[in-house]
């Protein structure tokens, strides 16, 4: 049986892991390569690295970090942040990343999804969607959650799938860093609207939250950062808990 995936996420700045609270205050959480190796050993199913500083100058730093991570770990990982062209994506895949994640650049230029999917395969393209409930609508935000795009979340997820996305990483910004639980309603709506895997993200604070997102939506993976990085929930601990709750995990 296909297992539900538990995915620790790393916000990367200058090669180190940081985690923002509600996308704002940054706290340093550790060395990325070392942490990646530890998580792989601990039983994480996949890893996601988002370069939150992603500037021109940082591209080389990111590529060399990806190379180091790939040589250290034996599980799949996704890299995102500042990927604006097919060349950017190809470089990271060549360095050993399994998938790349597009966010603002896909909103700005949706054809980029298709161009990268054609070059690298749809399985390599994750479209990350940051969403927030405003006036009764779940709206897509870009630029690290700073810019309201006017796009409807479900419609954008469907468009991303049609353009060639192989997976959706859905982050509820209200919930992100709050530890109040995943945004079940919008996660469920997106899962029901697309036929590709959806990773739920934002708000994980307790083991029950993981259970809820897996029992109340068809998300195939759940992503979290701070609860793992600060040692509040161990990877093996969450796996054992979910197994007990009759959820198939590795």
């Amino acid at each position: 049986m296909l297992k539900k995936r538990i995915i620790p996420c790393f916000d990367i700045k200058d090669g180190r892991v940081v985690k923002g609270i509600n996308f704002l205050e940054l706290r340093d959480a550790g060395d990325a390569v070392e942490m990646a190796a530890q998580y792989a050993k601990a039983g994480a199913d996949e890893l996601v690295f988002l370069d939150i500083t992603a500037t021109q100058e940082n591209r080389k730093t990111l590529a060399s970090l990806v190379e180091k991570i790939a040589s250290e770990i034996n599980i799949p990982f996704t890299v995102g942040g500042g990927i604006n062209s097919v060349e950017d994506a190809e470089r990271l895949i060549r360095c050993g990343a399994d998938k790349i994640s597009l966010n603002s650049s896909a909103v700005k230029n949706p054809e980029l999804i298709t161009a990268i999917a054609n070059a690298l395969g749809t399985q390599a393209v994750v479209v990350a969607i940051d969403t927030k409930l405003a006036n009764g609508n779940w709206e897509v935000y870009s630029n690290g959650g700073r810019v309201a795009t006017g796009l409807d979340t479900v419609a954008w997820a469907q468009q991303a799938e049609a353009l060639g996305a192989g997976e959706i990483l859905l982050t509820s910004m209200h919930n992100d860093g709050t530890k109040n639980g995943f945004a079940i309603a919008i996660t469920s709506q997106v899962c029901n609207a697309v036929n590709i895997p959806v990773i739920a993200s934002g708000g994980a604070g307790s083991m029950e939250h993981f259970r809820d997102v897996f029992t109340q939506t068809t998300a195939t993976a759940a992503l979290a950062a701070s609860v793992f990085h600060y040692g509040e929930i161990g990877i093996q601990e969450i796996k054992d808990y979910l197994k007990n709750e009759k959820i198939a995990v590795r």
Partner: peptide, 13 residues
């Protein structure tokens, strides 16, 4: 077949 989520992505036994 389109009756499920495709790609088959993740850990299976």
């Amino acid at each position: 077949p389109p009756r499920g989520i495709v790609p088959h992505m993740g850990w299976n036994n």
